[in-house]
């Protein structure tokens, strides 16, 4: 039984992959993601982290790009290339962690609301609506001001503000799935809540959640950059947002130091683009209605 199930799953995965691979945009995004992730992971081995240490800096501040410093130096005389490279790590980690948090909350709330119905649904959905109408950036700013500053706070701030959309999406999908006869059959055969949700609803909802995750990462990274740019992040950790924040705070505009502003900005654009390309391609694969429209 399980062997057959696995075989079937492997076949389905293979088919999905073939379809995904047939879309050039998705592939480009995937390759871009792989490269960026690899660079981020390899940073401690390939580069010298002591270059981030302001007390060991030898270069002058605000040096324009040269053969030694390809992207110039910042206000402390650190290499902007190195900072941008290391910034990838924090931006990715925060983006992914915040996404996991928000998708987790969203999925739990969405499935619970759809599955249990009645007053549970009413309460959960009003709760979701409440968060949906709150301007999420303002809420995130308020949260990260009240809580002690740091990575965890940023993750939390993004996570708890980004989930309502996921919850709504998952609820709709769960409702659609639960209306199908096989769920009714499972119930009639004595399947409890755990069984129905765990064995039937969740597997049917997961692909959608997965696509949603990919797309949420992009907005979470932008949110992280926004919050850090506003000075709400951890200032001693290098992220793209905090680089832009530092550039703004220490007068990069007056210095005309474009090399300090452009690389972190491009970093954000590249990662967000890669995630979006992947997400859209996946969406097309998993949602039959979108096929042929691309």
């Amino acid at each position: 039984m399980t062997a057959i199930a696995w075989q079937r799953r492997r076949a389905a995965a293979g088919a999905t992959w073939r379809e995904f691979a047939s879309q050039r945009g998705g592939l480009v995004g995937l390759v871009g993601l792989a490269v960026i992730t690899l660079l981020a992971l390899l940073a401690p081995w390939v580069t010298d982290a002591s270059g981030l240490d302001v007390t060991r800096v030898t270069a002058r501040p605000w040096e324009p790009p040269s053969s030694t410093y390809w992207l110039g130096t910042d206000h402390n005389g650190r290499s902007v290339l190195l900072l941008t490279w290391w910034g990838t790590r924090i931006s990715l980690v925060v983006g992914l962690a915040a996404t996991v948090l928000s998708v987790l909350i969203g999925t739990v709330v969405g499935i619970a609301a759809a599955h249990f119905g009645g007053w549970v649904s009413a309460v959960l959905m009003r709760f979701t609506d409440f968060f949906l109408v709150l301007p999420s950036l303002v809420l995130a700013i308020a949260l990260s001001t009240v809580l002690p500053r740091g990575l965890g706070t940023i993750v939390l701030a993004i996570g708890v503000t980004a989930w309502p959309a996921t919850a709504r999406l998952v609820r709709a999908q769960t409702l659609a799935v639960e209306a199908r006869p096989f769920i009714e059959r499972a119930r009639a055969l004595g399947g409890g809540h755990g069984h129905v949700i765990g064995r039937h609803v969740l597997p049917a909802v997961l692909p959608l959640v997965f696509v949603n995750t990919t797309l949420t990462v992009a907005s979470a990274i932008v949110a992280e950059s926004t919050l850090s740019f506003l000075g709400l992040g951890d200032p001693t950790r290098v992220s793209w947002g905090s680089l832009l924040h530092a550039a703004n705070m220490h007068g990069a505009v007056s210095q005309r130091a474009w090399w300090f502003l452009v690389p972190p900005g491009l970093g954000v654009v590249c990662v967000v683009l890669a995630f979006t390309l992947c997400g859209r391609a996946l969406e097309t694969v998993l949602n039959p209605r979108l096929k042929g429209e691309r």
Binding site: V54, T236, M249, H250
Partner: peptide, 12 residues
């Protein structure tokens, strides 16, 4: 800006 930048030095 001073605090933010000097904090790096103190930390290191």
């Amino acid at each position: 800006a001073y605090d933010e930048q000097t904090a790096e030095f103190v930390k290191r």
